[in-house]
């Protein structure tokens, strides 16, 4: 018989085991009871996820094999919806637009987030750090719809404040939202601006927790700030960069609010993302089966890109 050492504090009873090291019957019962209690505690969250996330996902994937207009009963059509996606230029083009916008948003979000985090991390006064952390995080707390409406007014070609100041310094008005590349760049900048707080906060936390001995060693070896940043700090926070990239990419691939509100997916289809096509197909054209098939393909694309990111990270992410 052996008894595990009791914890230093608290009233938890030591786990009793038999000579073979296995928990005794009474202990097993206790473990089962504790496990049951644990399951009970997490069951509301599991139930919530099951009802509001898992079930709709399964239903949506299942619906992609049906033709359904909401009003009449669904009709099984096999893989027809998926075959149609391949032939539908509008849908294929929307996936291209989604990838373009997502790539732009993620790059801007990571570069700006990291740059701001490095600058803020160099501040010595805690009050300044707190101020900048709060300021850069604030856009993330604002409603995306409200921000999009507001930004739509700011970037309006006719009376937007951006063009007002451009005109004030003698520059011509820019068709921010009414030209193809103007709309793409504006949507990327606004989406990245709103999300940058998320990556910024993660990078600040990662940079703050860097081991001082490594940084001191780099300094003793004569590494300057730039060399330290690229040769020491960035490699050390690479797992955080990986996580931020994955999360940012998943979010960006589901972009909807900004282009839907600011440009209605235009001009033409320049900013029509896959999610906008899903909305139009399902809720406006009443082709819910086809819209679900588009959603399923988007899900597969997101999973594939995420998988690729993890595979690529094996080469560059550094785990201590």
């Amino acid at each position: 018989m052996s008894t595990l050492a009791p914890p230093r504090s608290g009233n938890a009873r030591p786990l009793r085991t038999d000579p073979g090291g296995r928990p005794r019957r009474g202990t097993r019962r206790l473990a089962r009871r504790e496990a049951g209690f644990g399951f009970l505690i997490i069951s509301p969250a599991v139930l919530f996820v099951a009802v509001f996330t898992l079930a709709p996902m399964i239903a949506s994937v299942a619906l992609s094999f049906f033709s359904w207009d909401v009003i009449t009963p669904p009709r099984f059509v096999g893989l027809d919806n998926f075959e149609r996606i391949v032939r539908d230029d509008a849908v294929v083009s929307s996936f291209g637009t989604t990838l373009l916008l997502a790539f732009g948003i993620v790059v801007v979000q990571l570069v700006v987030g990291l740059g701001l985090a490095v600058l803020v991390n160099q501040r010595r006064r805690p009050a300044a750090k707190t101020f900048f952390r709060t300021t850069f995080y604030l856009p993330l707390l604002a409603s995306t719809a409200a921000v999009s409406i507001f930004m739509g007014y700011m970037f309006d070609m006719k009376f937007g404040v951006i063009n007002y100041y451009l005109n004030a310094v003698g520059l011509p008005s820019v068709p921010w939202l009414t030209s193809t590349w103007g709309a793409i760049v504006t949507i990327i900048l606004i989406a990245a601006w709103q999300q940058v707080g998320f990556t910024f906060v993660m990078f600040v936390a990662a940079l703050t927790s860097l081991p001082t001995d490594v940084l001191e060693a780099a300094a003793m070896d004569g590494a300057g700030p730039v060399r330290t940043l690229f040769g020491v700090k960035i490699p050390l926070i690479s797992p955080t960069i990986l996580f931020a990239t994955v999360v940012a990419m998943i979010n960006a691939l589901q972009l909807f609010d900004q282009p839907f509100i600011m440009t209605k997916g235009g001009p033409g289809t320049a900013t029509t993302t896959a999610t906008i096509v899903m909305y139009q197909t399902g809720f406006q054209n009443l082709q819910f089966g086809y819209a679900s098939a588009i959603a399923s393909v988007l899900l597969v694309i997101i999973l594939a890109i995420t998988g690729l990111q993890f595979l690529a990270a094996r080469k560059w992410a550094f785990y201590r």
Binding site: P175, T178, S179, T180, G266, P267, T272, Q284
Partner: peptide
């Protein structure tokens, strides 16, 4: 009866014509 699809296309193609 396909008004919604018509409206979507009308909006997209008109803005395309204006931008190009």
């Amino acid at each position: 009866p396909y008004y919604n699809a018509l409206a979507t296309s009308l909006n997209q193609r008109t803005t395309k014509a204006i931008s190009t």
